[in-house]
Write a protein that binds this DNA or RNA. Structure first.
Length: 218
DNA sequence: CTCCCGATAT
DNA sequence: ATATCAGGAG
C-alpha cells in the first residue's frame, strides 16, 4: 500500500531536516521587516527576485510608506519607480495598491491573520500567505513552497507533483508539523548554496547519500 | 498556457 | 543567447 512509500519519504524527510539543520543552523527569513505590513509587502515584492534586491528596495520604500493607507493612496508611478529593481514592477505596484485598498476597506488596515482572508489580497497566494502568517504571527497553516522548495522536494524524491499547491499537500503529509515553518528556509538555503537550479553541486552536497538525483542531475 | 520585468549566472 | 531568480494573475 501507499503506507510504506509514505513511510520511506517520511523517514527521508526527517534525515534531510536533521542534516540541513546542522548545515544551516541560522536558516531563517532573510527579508527585512519590522511589522506584518512590511513583511507582506516584502514578500509580495520577492517574486522572481532575490531577497537582497528586495531589501535594497524596501530600505527606502518603508521610510515613505508606513501604513496600508499610504499604499492605498500611493501614486502608482512613484510606487513603480521605488520598486522597479525587483522586476514585474507594474504588476507588483498595482497589486500592492489594490491589496492595500482591501486591507483598508475590509480588514481595518491590518494584515489579517487568516489564510482565507490573506488569499483575497491581489498578488497574494499560498506561498506569500504562508510566509506572512508564520513569520509575522507564528501561525503555521501550511508550508511555503517557492521555487527552491519545489525544485529540492522533487530532486530529493519527496514529491512527484509539479503544481505548488499539490507539492505543499504532499509535504504536509510527510514533514513533522513543528518543521512546517522552518523547512522552507532550510531548503531555500540549500537550494541557493548547493542544490542550484542550473548546476547543482552534488559533489559538495551533504544530502547526496539521501538523494535519488545525486550525480544524475547536472 | 502566457504575461509580467530587470539583473545576473552560465 | 538563454535560464533563472523568495510568484501570481488572467
Amino acid at each position: 500500500m501507499t503506507g510504506s512509500a509514505k513511510g520511506g519519504r517520511e523517514d527521508r524527510v526527517r534525515r534531510v531536516i536533521s542534516v540541513l539543520e546542522r548545515e544551516y543552523p541560522d536558516a531563517k527569513i532573510a527579508l527585512n521587516y519590522s511589522n506584518p505590513l512590511e513583511l507582506l509587502v516584502a514578500t509580495m515584492l520577492s517574486a522572481q527576485c532575490t531577497d537582497e534586491r528586495v531589501n535594497r528596495v524596501t530600505k527606502e520604500l518603508f521610510k515613505k510608506y508606513r501604513t496600508a493607507e499610504d499604499y492605498a493612496n500611493a501614486d502608482l508611478s512613484e510606487l513603480e519607480a521605488l520598486i522597479r529593481p525587483t522586476g514585474f514592477y507594474r504588476a507588483k505596484a498595482r497589486n500592492l495598491k489594490r491589496a492595500a485598498k482591501v486591507l483598508v476597506e475590509k480588514f481595518g488596515s491590518k494584515v489579517p491573520k487568516r489564510m482565507e482572508d490573506l488569499l483575497e489580497l491581489p498578488g497574494v497566494a499560498r506561498k506569500t500567505a504562508n510566509i506572512v502568517l508564520a513569520n509575522a504571527y507564528g501561525i503555521v497553516e501550511g508550508i511555503a513552497v517557492d521555487t527552491h522548495v519545489r525544485r529540492l522536494s522533487r530532486r530529493l524524491g519527496l514529491t512527484k507533483e509539479e503544481d505548488q499547491d499539490a507539492i505543499e499537500r504532499d509535504l504536509m503529509k510527510i514533514v513533522p508539523r513543528e518543521y512546517w515553518g522552518k523547512i522552507t528556509y532550510l531548503l531555500m538555503e540549500h537550494g541557493r548554496r548547493v542544490c542550484k537550479a542550473r548546476k547543482p553541486d552534488c559533489g559538495a552536497c551533504a544530502l547526496r547519500e539521501l538523494c535519488p538525483s545525486a550525480f544524475k542531475a547536472k
